[in-house]
Nucleic acid binder design. Structure first.
Length: 219
DNA sequence: ACCCAGGGTCATA
DNA sequence: TATGACCATGGG
């Protein structure tokens, strides 16, 4: 039995070899990435992407433009992302925060801990969204722990059972190093693997981590 | 007709 | 702190 850090490093190598670089996060600007992080919550990326295109077509990927909208005007625009009522409020809260703190230039100088704490104070931004934003938009070395990561870690045997979000995040950052690009790549690979293996059935037969899928019937 | 998807908030015990 | 209801569309 190897140590958790060793297993995670080995899995990283396997998934990178098998799936290749994922080139995440798909966004042209910091603000667009942040919008995507909210839109994709508990939703397939295809829906978030449609909502994003609707926003783009109306010039609403500009913070100032978006900030001028009411929730009831914004909601129908992002409808394909699902839960559009709550997401409209969340996007506006996040936009107010972003503009109010000087956008990217004003926020870039903050240290990671302060930036994280501030993000968590925004309505609609929880641990995973905050860490995704830190990692992909602000290039900070943090790992966003999602449902796919929990499933994979369980099957890799690096979890005993009730580890919380912070424990898994710390474990991963210890295993892969405090490197934003590497942690971001790992998060993307974990999602790619989860989607390939778990839906609708194992599509990823040659992947040696196929047994990490709870629905694969392999354990 | 289900089940789920790159979560988070809020109320309740 | 720990569950559970709720949000809501689109694809399998």
């Amino acid at each position: 039995m190897s140590r958790p850090t060793t297993r995670i490093r080995r899995a990283y190598r396997e998934l990178l070899d098998h799936h290749g670089p994922q080139y995440w996060w798909p966004a042209d600007t910091v603000f667009e990435m942040m919008i995507g992080a909210v839109l994709v919550q508990n939703t397939a990326w295809t829906g978030a992407e449609r909502a994003l295109e609707n926003l783009r077509g109306r010039g609403l990927l500009e913070p100032r433009a978006l900030a001028g909208l009411s929730p009831s005007r914004l909601a129908p625009v992002i409808r394909p992302a699902g839960t559009h009522g709550v997401k409209a409020r969340r996007l506006l809260a996040m936009t107010r925060w972003y503009v109010g703190h000087g956008c990217h230039d004003g926020l870039g100088a903050w240290d990671s801990a302060a930036l994280r704490a501030s993000l968590l104070g925004v309505h609609g931004i929880g641990p995973e969204s905050a860490d995704a934003i830190l990692c992909y938009a602000f290039d900070r070395p943090v790992f966003p722990v999602d449902a796919y990561a929990r499933r994979l870690y369980r099957r890799l045997g690096v979890m005993r059972g009730g580890e919380g979000y912070e424990a898994l995040r710390a474990m991963t950052e210890r295993a892969l190093g405090r490197d934003a690009a590497r942690l971001g790549e790992w998060h993307a690979l974990v999602v790619a693997h989860g989607k390939a293996v778990c839906r609708p059935r194992p599509l990823c037969n040659e992947c040696t981590l196929a047994r990490s899928c709870p629905r694969a019937g392999l354990g």
